[in-house]
């Protein structure tokens, strides 16, 4: 199939970028989207042009590296699918596809489609863990966890930290990411002692990093490749409300 790509090209963080047009004539429908970009890049290199930079690693939908907005939708048109798992059979011969990087102040563009998502690591640093040192753990069966909580915690824990939620959010908010971690740990008995301080600290960090505020639009959950439930945000809110009323603080 023939595809026209319009790709955001930006030399470096400070450069002004623009959309560039490329035509590909021999796209196979069984190719993944990234393989299609590989083919483009091979062509560009042989023409002596700079290939399109994009983050990618595992190419099986779990590492969360690949990040691009395809025709206005983070990770493209397939639900619950990362860009690397998106295949060209979901496009038609002759399609024009727009490819852009995540857009958020907290995710500055490094080059082309590559952005700096280290803000997510900083949110985790603010409390996305259980404070347990190696070796101090009790026997695993000492604390049973009811299956429903364990399953719900798992649903939240599937977050791959790709940042599609931020990219899609009209407010540029990282709320779904933060909420996924707060929900994952908050539903497990191991996460209880730090539950309120975790919620309030991670939220404070998210606000500080210039992510937007959540207004419950739900775009995040629509594009989330792992289907993190929007209700996770409600859990985060619940924990923040409790912490706010109780005056909980983290230190």
């Amino acid at each position: 199939m023939r595809i026209t790509l319009r790709v955001w090209r930006q030399k470096n963080a400070d450069a002004k970028g623009k959309m560039e047009k490329y035509k590909l004539d021999d796209v196979d429908e069984d190719m993944s989207f990234l393989e299609m970009l590989d083919v483009l890049n091979e062509k560009l290199i042989l023409q002596g042009e700079d290939p399109v930079s994009f983050d990618h690693d595992c190419r099986e939908g779990i590492c969360g590296s690949c990040a691009m907005v395809i025709n206005g939708t983070p990770h493209g048109p397939q639900k619950n699918t990362t860009t690397c798992q998106l295949h060209m059979r979901h496009f038609k011969d002759g399609d024009t596809i727009d490819v852009e990087p995540w857009r958020a102040r907290a995710f500055p563009v490094i080059k082309d489609l590559v952005t700096d998502r280290s803000a997510f690591d900083q949110i985790i640093q603010a409390g996305g863990y259980v404070s347990v040192n190696t070796g101090s753990a009790p026997e695993a069966h000492a604390t049973p966890v009811d299956k429903v909580s364990a399953d719900d915690a798992f649903d939240a824990a599937t977050c791959i930290g790709c940042g599609a939620c931020v990219a899609a959010c009209p407010n540029g908010s990282s709320m779904l990411f933060t909420a996924a971690k707060v929900t994952h740990l908050g539903l497990l008995p191991q996460g209880q002692p730090e539950r309120q301080t975790r919620a309030i600290s991670m939220l404070a960090k998210q606000d500080e990093l210039d992510f937007g505020g959540c207004t419950n639009v739900g775009a995040c959950a629509e594009v989330c490749p792992k289907g993190i439930p929007l209700a996770s945000i409600s859990r985060l809110n619940h924990d923040v409300l409790g912490a706010t009323l109780a005056g909980a603080r983290a230190d």
Binding site: S136, A137, T143, P144, D146, F154
Partner: peptide
Amino acid sequence: DQCVAQGVPFAREYSGL
């Protein structure tokens, strides 16, 4: 033991184990 304490959501049975 270590992973469970960290909050790794291993699969569980209805007993919670």
